[in-house]
Simulated scan of single mutants.
Amino acid sequence: MSICQKVARAWYGSRDRGGAEVPVGVIASLAVLEQPEDGPEVSTRLLGFSPEQLVTHYRSLWALLWLIRPELADWARPVRSWLEQSDLSRERMDAVHAVTQAALKAGLLDVTGSVDPYRRSQVDVFSVLLTELRSVGASRAIGEFHTPPDAADLMVSLTLQDESRPGQWFYDPTAGTGGLFRVIAQHLRETGRDPAEFGWSLNDVDPIAAACCAVNAYIWGLGPRVLVACSDVLEQPHRHVQALEERAAAFTRRAALISAAKPLAMLHKLLPDVSGMETG
């Protein structure tokens, strides 16, 4: 049984009746972690966490990712917004724990946790996961059909030109979870080029799939030139322009937060000295 099959079984075996964004959000939280081969065993440590500790840990992870890549964290909101609720139910926390345990025991971090972006880009976990979590009928209702990896490999080999140069942008208006771009990024690495030097614009009509694109962009090391949009391209053919504005706004908000936090940090350093002063 695959990692994603075990995750789906753990989710549907729980008492939580939420949507796919919950198990996908758990896997997204785990997939952004790195597990160095010669470092501490991240999986072992997380397997010992209680449901409450896991929720706290995942909230911290997303806060950190927002500081590192605020635009990607914003675009991933559809799969992480449930973590922002202050009063998660017992059923929700237990389901988070069950999904985490299933994913880690099945070896998720062996697939996504390498410090080498080439190694952690071997598989699009989210494409497989959404297929497992959604029935065929549900996928048809939103027009969701994920490109099989073999088909993506063939498409890239037939269409990608080896004269592609840094600065060039790739655009996929029906990206799903971004699987085609994974193959392109791998091809660029195999031919001595760095995907981070190219631009990547991904769009999908499904909010969860688009959010997965944002997470995958981070996992696969696509670099700073990434745009993620969620729209029907027939109705909004220029949605990527709005994504440019969203990216700029995310970095502006981060800069404002950091600027506001600096005086507080300085005050925090002074507080021990102030509290120790004698008053006369």
Rank of each mutant, 00 (worst) to 15 (best):
F126M: 08
V99P: 02
D94H: 12
R119E: 11
G107N: 07
D110M: 12
A98Y: 04
R92L: 14
V115T: 14
V96E: 12
M93T: 15
L65R: 03
D87N: 12
V115F: 07
P117S: 02
G107Y: 07
S81W: 08
R90C: 12
V99N: 15
D94T: 14
W66T: 00
V125F: 05
A76M: 02
V99R: 15
L88M: 07
V79P: 00
P78W: 01
V111L: 13
Q101C: 13
R119V: 06
A73E: 10
K105F: 09
D110N: 13
D94E: 12
L108A: 03
A73P: 01
A106W: 07
S127A: 14
K105Y: 01
P70S: 00
Q85N: 15
Y118I: 13
S86M: 07
R92V: 12
V99Q: 10
Q101R: 15
P78S: 00
S127D: 13
R69I: 06
L64E: 15
A106Y: 02
D124A: 08
L65Q: 12
Y118V: 14
A106V: 10
R120D: 05
R119Q: 11
P78G: 02
S89G: 03
A98Q: 08
R90E: 05
V79H: 04
M93R: 10
A102N: 09
S121C: 09
L64K: 12
T100V: 11
T100L: 05
Q122W: 09
S127I: 06
T100G: 03
S114G: 10
V96I: 09
S127T: 06
D74L: 12
W66L: 04
V96A: 07
A76Y: 02
R80M: 08
R80A: 10
V123I: 15
R77G: 10
A95W: 01
L83R: 01
L88Y: 03
F126H: 05
Q101D: 15
V99H: 13
D94S: 14
S127H: 08
R120L: 04
E91I: 06
V111N: 07
D110C: 13
A106L: 11
S114C: 04
L83Y: 01
T112V: 10
D87Y: 09
R92D: 09
D94G: 02
E91R: 14
V125R: 04
P117T: 10
V99C: 03
V123D: 02
V96T: 01
S89E: 02
A76P: 01
V79S: 03
V99Y: 10
A106G: 09
Q85V: 10
D94V: 15
E91C: 02
A98L: 08
R80Q: 06
D74W: 14
L83A: 06
D124H: 06
W66C: 02
Y118N: 06
V79K: 08
A98G: 10
R92Y: 08
R92K: 12
P70W: 01
T112M: 11
A76Q: 00
L109M: 09
P78L: 05
V123S: 11
Q101M: 13
E71Q: 13
E91Y: 13
L104N: 05
Q101L: 15
V99M: 05
